[in-house]
Nucleic acid binder design. Structure first.
Lengths: 225, 225
DNA sequence: GCCCGAGGGATTGTATACAATGATACAAGA
DNA sequence: TCTTGTATCATTGTATACAATCCCTCGGGC
């Protein structure tokens, strides 16, 4: 299930692209703990490449905020604090509704169909308790929404945040019984978009975010402020 | 006036850091038109460095969305469309208010003092018609606000957007008589923060963004939707 | 014992050499 | 004329060599 949630504009098949994707994945999945120093040579050897592509990947990771590079010293993994997660959920609750509102006017038939299929399938996998599939479908539902909003800027932004909280989100789905409720909320958002009801779509998407956030706190996945 | 508006975590004094800052500046200032191809060697020669730091700078610029790298082909300057600007201002109007709200609780005395000095100085330079200084002070005012909000995530986000619309913003200040009005709005935001009035701070910062946006449209700097 | 500075090793920063890829021009054939 | 294949060149992708910097240790001096 480790495919890229957010595809990069960079070449997926260049060495640098592979290093970049791989490192990001590893960091988000918690392979490297916060504060760990990443050495160019070590990473390069592990992936079978020289320092050059590793260095370029580092620069990108730094800009994504996943590592911090101290000049002439080293690259250190930046952790995601509870505060970061809280902040992101608050921002998402403000922006996700906007995306849903805009999607009402910009969603294509293909996207609508994929969303319907997504909701339908999610119900199935939730009943069966297939956690991985639930996680993937949930990811994809939000991605479709982002892609359907008709704004490259907003899409990019929300995908970024989405990616960023991947780690904690995985825990959420695994540990909680939120699956069924989340599915219902997705379905309601989908209905609002289908009915071209922008106000409902925005409100529901908004609430969906807030509920997800509350759920994380209730399950002790992050500490409340 | 060409100092960095947004300082990078990277070394300002490394060759790569210099190439990065310089290129970003040049792109935002319109030295390179949309679609122009940037060649590693040419840029390197122009700045007196080899391809290595140039390449690393390219990777960063791509992630900032300022250039687009097509693998094995080249790096091309990405333009900012009117739609991008519109989208950004809408997002900013949603987020800038949040930053002001949070700043009420998190701003430090130093930041408050710098803001007061900023507002005071801005009045002076506006009366004198010093466009460059007005521009810098306006930039800085918003930066202080972002830094004062107490959220690295939101700060990073807003600085990104801020940076992104630099080009058009420079035109705005130069062409319009919005200076005095903008100063008044800054002052009102500052007052609200000083008085710990979060609701006012949010509303005023919000309106400030919307006014700036309207002003751009009224002056024909971007086309309305 | 404590401070300070020199030295050496490890790591990053930069330049350059080489490989791979893509663009272009031009010629042969239909 | 148009298409297509090929050779060549420009440019990017990667590896490696060298320079600069940092960190840590180990003595010397007090």
């Amino acid at each position: 299930m480790e495919e890229d949630v957010k595809e990069s504009a960079s070449d997926k098949y260049s060495l640098r692209g592979r290093v970049f994707s791989r490192l990001r994945e590893d960091i988000l999945n918690g392979k490297y703990d916060e504060g760990v120093e990443l050495r160019e040579i070590a990473i390069g050897e592990e992936l079978g490449v020289s320092r050059t592509p590793v260095r370029e990947a580092f620069r990108q990771l730094e800009l994504e905020g996943l590592i911090r590079i101290i000049p002439n010293k080293g690259a250190y993994v930046v952790g995601i604090s509870d505060k970061d997660v809280r902040d992101i959920y608050i921002l998402r609750s403000r922006l996700e509704g906007l995306a849903a509102r805009w999607a009402v006017d910009h969603i294509t038939n293909e996207q609508l169909e994929e969303m319907e299929e997504n909701v339908y399938l999610a119900k199935f996998h939730t009943e069966k308790g297939h956690l991985e599939q639930m996680f993937e479908l949930d990811n994809r539902f939000h991605e479709i929404l982002y892609e359907a909003c008709g704004s490259k800027i907003l899409e990019h932004q929300l995908k970024d945040y989405h990616q960023y909280v991947l780690r904690i989100r995985k825990k959420t789905l695994a540990s909680a019984k939120r699956g069924p409720q989340s599915n219902l909320e997705h379905e309601a958002i989908l209905e609002a978009i289908k009915n071209k009801n922008a106000d409902d779509a925005e409100r529901l998407a908004n609430e969906h975010m807030i509920n997800a956030y509350r759920n994380m706190i209730d399950n002790g996945l992050i500490k409340p402020d």
